[in-house]
Design a protein around this nucleic acid. Structure first.
Lengths: 245, 245
DNA sequence: CGTGACATTGAACGTGATCAAACGGAGTGG
DNA sequence: CCACTCCGTTTGATCACGTTCAATGTCACG
């Protein structure tokens, strides 16, 4: 499919993509940017840390995890990504990908040559604006994650994860009060800086407390309000205590 | 000083600034961008989370801390910033600052009207490139921080902080094997997701082990190699053990 | 010289990790 | 169809890292 013209109008991610603000002509120019549509199966990599940076990527459908690895092999999942998400920005101007992206399920991803993107970016106001927007929100989102990893209790981290995932899915026009976790418990644990066992126990507790309903990877949010309260009231725990329960 | 023309050539941060790649004419256009040079004293804020977004800021001299606050008042320092650092990017297109910046010492900061910056950005390749570079490296840096906050032991976090600070200072043309920590122990602890007491104890331990020399806020790196080893060898601790020592 | 913020040091506790084992579902082959 | 394996998940018991609580120490500044 290399070299095939993009067809953004028929893409599932069009409303959440970099091209969502473009005029018809601009979008046509965007569609003509070189690149491939890639389909990845669970476990396959889109790119890996250290790879040459040549393209930006946008998730069209499916989901993926992104992670960084340190010199000693320590691995940290930095994010889970759904349709519309832009991947690979970090590598601009360093010439190298700074993290790895791996599909969590069969996923389709749109590749865009960065060199050509740069040219279009230079003379397309709508693209610049949307790019700013995406990058700014990624920066802000990462700062929020520092707060999660630096300050929250295990219980709060999981509550945050569930609510944040729901919100993210909602923003992408996907089902959000009931959804499937495409990642393993191990992935969630890694993402939240906790042990797998902790995730497993907390999910069970949340289920018992009727905050959520968990059945394997199927999640239903039963009481988002109480989840949110759990996240904010550090003094007076709501239902599921840390020590108690 | 509002409206005063910038004079980049005499600025301490010129080699590390957004304007560092510009041609003479381009830099003159950059100098003409509206904005103020602001001088902040220790504890004064450059902007606060929730403020209207109107400008970008570049540290000219001094240092500052940036932090986010959650609804329940939980606070997380997201970064310490030195000359050349660009601040406020996260607020682009959201119209609102997403974090707070506070001076750690008397500091001078260059304010740039975003509206005007955007115009110059549109037709100045060098500015776009440098902006990409800065934003990409901030994104990558934040991902590294997730690894620190999610995976490392207290000892490794502090080692990372010291080495990372040194590297950052070096990249900014500042003294890096011996430097002054302009932030309190409390700030370091918050930044690293640890308690103040832990920082204090570890600094003492690092000093005893001749990894560094600490005297109040004055730090001298004695053995960067061993600090680095401490950071990577999780199996075979180098000198300063976790349980032992 | 007193006051207050910042920093250090010690002792006890607690959250979440680690270790260990069993369980369950999905896929495979007899 | 059923054993079988494999991987992901759950559950229980113990342990440890880092927190919390408390007290003392130190520096800067009125």
């Amino acid at each position: 499919m290399r070299g095939a013209k993009r067809d953004c109008r028929s893409c599932q991610a069009v409303s959440y993509c970099l091209c969502c603000q473009l005029t018809t002509e601009e979008r046509e120019a965007f569609e003509n940017l070189a690149g491939t549509r890639r389909v990845l199966r669970r476990g396959e990599r889109l790119f890996a840390q250290g790879d040459d940076f040549r393209s930006l990527y946008i998730v069209q459908s499916g989901s993926a995890k992104a992670y960084v690895i340190s010199e000693d092999g320590n691995q940290q999942i930095t994010g889970f990504h759904y349709r519309g998400d832009l991947l690979g920005v970090d590598g601009m101007e360093v010439g190298m990908q700074t993290y790895t992206v791996e599909a969590l399920e069969t996923s389709s991803i749109c590749e865009i040559s960065f060199a050509e993107f740069e040219r279009l970016h230079a003379n397309t106001a709508g693209l610049r604006q949307q790019f700013f927007k995406v990058v700014a929100s990624e920066l802000a989102r990462e700062k929020q994650r520092m707060l999660v990893l630096g300050k929250l209790y295990a219980e709060q981290r999981l509550a945050h994860f569930l609510l944040d995932t729901a919100a993210h899915l909602e923003g992408r026009g996907l089902a959000h009060s009931e959804f499937v976790l495409t990642m393993t418990r191990h992935d969630i644990a890694n993402y939240l800086g906790l042990a797998v066992e902790t995730i497993s126990r907390l999910l069970t507790r949340f289920d018992s407390a009727d905050l959520i309903r968990v059945r394997h990877r199927q999640i239903r949010l039963l009481d988002a309000a109480r989840l949110r309260a759990l996240l904010y009231d550090t003094e007076q725990p709501v239902v599921v205590l840390r020590a108690t329960a």
